[in-house]
């Protein structure tokens, strides 16, 4: 009984860490215009819309965060193998992983922007300086929380995988959660605020992203400020739920039926979420009008 209570406590802690990690990850990737909204930021100068938005295309978020978290975890593992204190080892590992993230961000921005010479898109050095540091700060929070939750799984819950492998797996999961939940909010709600709500992106409007603010010109910090309100927390809840439910079902039901209990509960959770998702979709279509047939107003 005591071990189950201990396990549930660790589960709650990892869930909380994952929530913070998800929120920080989404804000980081939105400030960097990483993930699928990147295509419009990349396209904008080619359509004549020069902008002051940070464009760090490193990879999709899942592979990128797979690397940052695997690297943080690998370095932390190495420091612990050198008999360093676990807390210090994780912090040092994450600092070095964030250094790599920062270097990748600068080279990505410089490379993409220099290749747009033909369209006159300049390299803004101030953007490079101010955005890179802000993304690094958010990335540190995301990586640190993820590596810590991996360490808790490994050391406190006795997960058989070594730390770097756990870092790789949960890093990819973190990137996927931030990419799937947070990106639509940034890509559709933010970059196309000057379009009619729900109008999609007609070809004529490709690349016509929001570039000007109430006063002056927008940069990516404004985008991070905007998406930190809803997109970030939503990604955090998504990743937090993934981590929490995954560990919760393992801790409580693993003893039943030689491990089959946890598997059956996992399938049940998937079914429950499928039903919830479907009913929300049906409700949204009923409430906000037909999905496929455009009305006269929408097409005008």
């Amino acid at each position: 009984m005591e071990s189950i209570v201990f396990g549930i406590g660790i589960t709650a802690l990892t869930g909380a860490l994952a929530t913070v990690a998800g929120a920080a990850e989404d804000t980081e990737s939105n400030i960097g215009s990483q993930g699928d909204p990147n295509s419009q930021v990349q396209l904008a100068p080619q359509m004549g819309y020069l902008h002051r938005i940070f464009n760090k295309a490193i990879a999709g978020e899942p592979p990128a965060y797979g690397l940052w978290c695997a690297l943080g975890a690998g370095l932390a593992w190495a420091f612990m193998a050198m008999q360093l204190n676990a807390v210090l080892a994780i912090v040092l590992g994450c600092v070095l992983a964030v250094f790599v993230q920062g270097v990748y961000s600068t080279t990505a921005y410089l490379g993409r922007t220099a290749s747009l010479k033909k369209f006159g898109q300049p390299v803004f050095v101030d953007i490079l300086k101010s955005m890179t540091t802000v993304t690094m700060a958010h990335a540190f929070i995301a990586i640190f929380c993820t590596v810590t939750l991996c360490y808790l799984m490994n050391a406190a819950l006795g997960h058989p995988f070594p730390l770097p492998l756990l870092g790789l797996l949960w890093g990819i999961a973190l990137g996927a959660a931030g990419s799937a939940v947070g990106n639509p909010y940034y890509g559709k709600e933010r970059q196309y605020q000057n379009q009619k709500f729900g109008a999609g992106v007609p070809i004529a409007q490709s690349g016509n992203i929001v570039r000007y603010a109430e006063a002056g010109e927008r940069n990516s910090l404004d985008n991070g400020f905007f998406t930190a309100k809803l997109g970030g927390p939503a990604s955090g809840v998504c990743f937090g739920l993934i981590v929490f439910l995954e560990l919760w079902r393992t801790i409580l039901f693993e003893k039943i039926g030689a491990g089959w209990g946890a598997i059956i509960v996992g399938i049940l959770i998937i079914l429950i979420f499928t039903i919830i998702d479907r009913s929300i979709e049906v409700w949204a279509r009923k409430t906000y009008g037909p999905y496929a047939v455009p009305t006269k107003e929408a097409s005008s």
């Binding site: 490193i58 690397l67 690297l71 593992w77 290749s115 770097p164 790789l168």
Partner: peptide, 28 residues
Amino acid sequence: GGSLIATAFMLGALAVQHPFNACLGPGW
């Protein structure tokens, strides 16, 4: 045994794709 190979895998996989991914475009 310590799965450092997982870290090496990701280090290499991102490093090999990043140069072209970052530099692509008309001015490559």
